[in-house]
């Protein structure tokens, strides 16, 4: 009888300790969770500010101003610069390439002079071949 009472009391004390420990653990974790929630909220607020700043920095007016300042020789693409592939093939592109583009390449590269028209021809062959011969016209 006495032994069972002692065992019960010990058991109760142990259970009490466990419950107490679990309770304190829960309180600790709850505080930690609150802290994490606060941090998440803060990070979310920061992200919103960064997004707003990024969007502000990408404002078309600002980009235009910067482009005009730092890229004075570049202009937006005009519609006349876009032609169909058929029209491109029909034009004397080899001559145009040799006269206009090849000198620029030569000027900017330190390599030996290349046969520009040949290089361009092989580029085209490669491009058509890579697309399985289904390069779309227009």
């Amino acid at each position: 009888m006495n032994r069972s009472v002692i065992v019960s009391v010990v058991f109760l004390v142990l259970v009490g300790l466990c419950v107490s420990r679990v309770k304190y653990e829960v309180v600790f974790l709850r505080n930690k969770l609150k802290e994490i929630d606060r941090k998440i909220e803060k990070y979310q607020d920061d992200i919103r500010v960064y997004n707003a700043e990024w969007s502000y920095l990408n404002d078309p007016k600002r980009l235009k101003r910067l482009a005009m300042k730092y890229l004075p020789n570049l202009r937006p693409t005009e519609n006349a610069q876009i032609i169909s592939f058929d029209a491109f093939m029909a034009s004397d592109f080899e001559k145009a390439f040799t006269q206009n583009i090849a000198p620029v390449i030569e000027q900017h590269s330190q390599r030996r002079t290349i046969d520009a028209s040949k290089a361009f021809g092989s580029f085209l062959d490669e491009a058509v071949g890579r697309n399985g011969g289904v390069m779309q016209n227009g």
């Binding site: 937006p76 519609n79 876009i82």
Partner: peptide
């Protein structure tokens, strides 16, 4: 037009 046509020529 150059932006909206995405580089596609207009027929």
């Amino acid at each position: 037009v150059p932006i909206l046509s995405n580089g596609k020529p207009q027929h």
